[in-house]
Design a protein around this nucleic acid. Sequence first.
DNA 1: ATGCTCTGCTAAATCAGTTTAGCGACGTAG
DNA 2: CTACGTCGCTAAACTGATTTAGCAGAGCAT
Lengths: 348, 348
Amino acid sequence: MGRDRATLADVAKRAGLSKTAASMVLNGREGTRLSAEAHQRVFAAAEELGYRPNVAARSLRTRKTATIAFVSDIVATTRFAGGLIRGALDAARERDHVLLITETQGDATFERYAIEAILDRQVDGVIYAAMATRRLSVPPAILSGPVVLLNATSAEDLPCVLPDDEGAAAAIAETLLGCGHRDRIALIGRNRQKERDPEISLAAEARLRGIRATLAAAGVSLLVESFCPEWLPEHGYTATRALLARPDRPTAIICMNDRLAFGAYQALGEAGLTIPDDISVISFDDDPTASWLRPRLSTAALPHEQMGRRAVELLLDGEAPAQSLVPMPLRRRRSVAAPAGSPAAEHD
Amino acid sequence: MGRDRATLADVAKRAGLSKTAASMVLNGREGTRLSAEAHQRVFAAAEELGYRPNVAARSLRTRKTATIAFVSDIVATTRFAGGLIRGALDAARERDHVLLITETQGDATFERYAIEAILDRQVDGVIYAAMATRRLSVPPAILSGPVVLLNATSAEDLPCVLPDDEGAAAAIAETLLGCGHRDRIALIGRNRQKERDPEISLAAEARLRGIRATLAAAGVSLLVESFCPEWLPEHGYTATRALLARPDRPTAIICMNDRLAFGAYQALGEAGLTIPDDISVISFDDDPTASWLRPRLSTAALPHEQMGRRAVELLLDGEAPAQSLVPMPLRRRRSVAAPAGSPAAEHD
DNA sequence: ATGCTCTGCTAAATCAGTTTAGCGACGTAG
DNA sequence: CTACGTCGCTAAACTGATTTAGCAGAGCAT
C-alpha cells in the first residue's frame, strides 16, 4: 500500500533546495524569505513527482493527524446512524480530515478498546455520539483533547449537538391547531422511563413539554395521553385501538415517533378509518418508511446529517463551546387535515 | 489528545535496559537472547507507566498502521450500510485493527480524495464496498495493496464478498412449493436495467435465475412476471393492484425486495384481502420494516453483518483470494401459508 | 575598514518507534 | 595461551516529516 512514494527529500533534491525550504514552501509558511523562484521550483518538483506527504511522519512531529474519531454506542441497530456519519464525513472532508470509526456497543471492554485505539493514533478530536438523544458519561481518558458530544449531553457540559425536540413538538402542536384541531388531540407514547431518566432519553420529556406548552398557550389540553412500554409499531397499534374504543374519538393523533405512527396506521386501516379525513396523524423522526406510508406521514425530521456536520464544525472550527440545537424540519405531508365537520374541512 | 504519554525510552530506562531490549520484549520477538529477568522488568515497567506505543512512530518505520480503509459509494442512503460497517468493525477489533471510513458518493472527485486520504495514511488494506450488489471498477491506485470487494465484483477479479441471492431465491421458491403453491405464483419486480447491467445490480438476475430454476425443476413456471421501474413501495402497490385485476388471481406473490412487498401489503389491504389466507407474500432483504408489517413478512435476509465480517477476514487472514458467497437466511414469518382451498390449508 | 542589518537559504535536532550491526564477557576446545 | 562461539545486551541508523538555530553574502552607514 503506497510503496515508492516520493518523499520530501526527493522533492527538495529535484528543486535543488533543502528539505527545510521544500517543507516551508509546501506548507505555505508565512514570513519565510524564500524567493518566488524557489517557490516555483518546489511546486513544480512536487507536482512532477506526485508528491504527497506521509501522514505518519508528519504527525509524529506535529501531533496532528487530520483524523477525527467518531465513537458511538451503536452503529448498526438504528437506521439513523448513517445520517450522523455521513454529515460528519462530509464536513470532515471539507476540512481535509478523515473519520476513524469505533463502536462501544455500550460495553465497557469495547469502550476501553476504542479509547485506546484512538489515543494510540493521536486523533485530533473525538465525536462521541449516542444513537438515542440522551445524557451519557464520557470516559475521562478522552477529555485530554477536544471532544464534542453528538446527540447527547453529559455532566461535564462539553460542547454538544442536539436536535431541537421541543421546538419540533411546538411546530407539531401548532400545525394541528392551525388545522382546527382543538380538544380532541390524542398523544401516543408517554413513557415514564424515557421521560424520567435522561440517560435513556432526552427526547421524550422535551417533546412532551413542547406539545403541552403550545397547546396550553391556545387554551387546549390533550384529550388522552397513552402510555407505551416502548416506541414500537406494535405499541402504537395497541394504543390506537384503545383510543378508537373511546366514545370521544380523537380528531388527531400525535405519535412520539414514526414507529408508533406506523402501528397507528395499521390500527386505523383495520378499523376502516381514513387518514386524514377521519383522523390526522403526525409524529417525530422522519424515518424513511414515513414516506412509504399511504398517505405519506407528516413528521418532524431528525436532522441527522446536519447534526453530524455540526459536530465536526464545533470540533474543528473551535467556536465557543456551547450547546448547539439543530432545528427539526417539519415534513408536511398528507396525513394531516382539518378535523371532519370543521368549517375548514374542505379537502385540500 | 494524549500528551505526556510514556515512551519506549521511558520504559527502557525504568527497566534499566536499552530501547532495543524493551522493543524486542514488548513485541514478543523470538530468537532474542534476553533473559527471563529482563522480560519481567520490561513488562513491569510498561505496566507501571501505562505504556502504549505511538502508532505514528511505529508505522513510520514498519509501514503498518493496523488500520483498514472502508470505502463505500454511499453510506447514509441505504439502511443496510450499518450492518456492513458493524460486521467489519467487529472483525477488525478482534484483530486489533481500526476502520477508517470514507464515502465516494459515486463522485469522481470525492473518490480521488478518498483514495489520497487512504494512501497518505498508509492503511494496511482496503475494503471497497457497494451498497447495492453490483460490479464496479476499482481505482487502480489502491491496487498496490490488499483489497477486498464487499457486496461487489470487478473486472480485476479481486477477492470479494457477495450475498447468495441465487440460493435465497431457490429457498423462497421451495418454500412456496412446499406450501402447495404451484401454478399461481406471481413475481413482482422484473426490471430490465437491473437484470442487464451488472454495474447497477447483480441481485436482480441472480434472484430471477434462482426462482425460475427451482420452479422449473418442479415442473412449474411463474404465472406472471410484473415489471417495475424501481423497487419501491409505490411500484409494488401498482403491480399488485394490476395482479388483483386478473381473473386468475395468484395464490402467492414473490417480491424482489421488501419495499415492493411493502407496497403489495398496502394494495392487498385496500382490496380487503388477508395475508396469508388469501395470498402469500414473500420477498428478499429483511428490511427492518419487514417485521413491523402485519402479518410479519417472510423474507430472505441480506446478511450484511456477516458480509462485513467476512470482508475483514479475507483482507487480514489472507485466505486464498476467492469469491465468498454468504448465505441469506430465510426468515420464515407469518406471511406465507398454503393456498386457499388446498388440501394442506389448515391454518397454522 | 568595520560593524550592522537584511536576505535567502541550510544543517541538524526532533518526534517515537524498529532494526541492523556488533560489543564485551565468559566458557571451551585446541 | 589463543581462538572461537555463545550469551546477553546496546549503540546507532533509519523511517519522513517539521522546526530551531544559524550561516554566508550583499548592501549600507560610519
